[in-house]
Design a protein around this nucleic acid. Structure first.
Lengths: 154, 154
DNA sequence: TTCTCAATGATGACATCTCAACAATCGCCT
DNA sequence: AGGCGATTGTTGAGATGTCATCATTGAGAA
């Protein structure tokens, strides 16, 4: 008894749900960060920079944020215009800038982050932390498999 | 003993991993669909249309794909230029088009979908279907919570 | 019927992203 | 020292996405 041609397997729907959930999270975060006039990408960039008090190269940022170098250029441009970030010259490598948070950005993050972390916890509802942590390893497996399969020569 | 100010809760990292995994899946799918000269969004649109043999309104498409109406306009424009989709006039509502798959698109999908469904299964590796299905309900909970929290008046 | 409000799709402005190409610089190898 | 390949940031083209706004059309209330 045949079903539809090329019926999806049982785990296909789960992947779709995963993508959809991530999209909803992203869109929700857009609404959330709009209160501080930030986009999710802008916040992520600032958030990464908090781990690099001495500054961070744009290429390093692109790797941390998993995006193309050329995208970081415009992102930093707009954040620099708003005074949240500055480009410092790098004495040891004259090709690369050092992107640093301004005090204004640190103040903004100090106000924003508690709300953000609280909201992140709220999103899980009654799902316990133990379950969430088990999820992480499964998600990591999926990430690796996806990247490997995509880069495999067909 | 205080940690960093505004330390993230235990489930925060899991959310980050979720977003990262979705991003890797999306990027992997970009590489995957490039074999047929399609973007992930273009594929998703065509895939949705297979469920609507009589055609689908652009607004309906925007709801199915969770994107703004204005985005569907350009997406359909480009697919129409490539002959994968046509805009039929709608007798019962002269505001709306009916977007329909062309035979060429059906042929393309018939060739593409088996590979896609196989890859989707492969991504899970040794994670059993039962666990994947349990994931779905948790992800659905997260989706709902995120949307609700974002839309709540603060 | 007419009026009003909602829905549809298009458009323009803009942010976000990828990719290819480029000049400048770095590092290493000979 | 010189040369060569890799890395860095920028630029331009173009796809993808949001949002506000608009004219057209639908549909239900007065």
């Amino acid at each position: 008894m045949k079903r539809k041609p090329s019926a999806p397997g049982p785990r296909y729907a789960a992947l779709i749900q995963l993508l959809r959930t991530a999209e909803e999270l992203w869109n929700s975060s857009r609404v959330f960060f709009a209160r501080w006039d930030l986009s999710p990408s802008q916040f992520n960039l600032l958030n990464v920079l908090t781990d690099f008090p001495d500054g961070c190269t744009q290429s390093d940022l692109s790797r941390q944020l998993i995006m193309h170098r050329s995208n970081v250029t415009g992102l930093v441009d707009r954040l620099e215009e708003r005074g949240l970030v500055t480009r410092k010259e790098n004495a040891t490598d004259r090709r690369a800038w050092l992107v640093v948070l301004t005090p204004a950005a640190r103040k903004l993050l100090a106000e924003l982050l508690p709300h953000y972390h609280a909201a992140a916890e709220q999103v899980w509802g009654k799902i316990p932390a133990a379950r969430a942590e088990k999820l992480v390893s499964e998600l990591a497996t999926i990430s690796e498999n996806a990247t490997r399969i995509a880069n495999a020569k067909s």
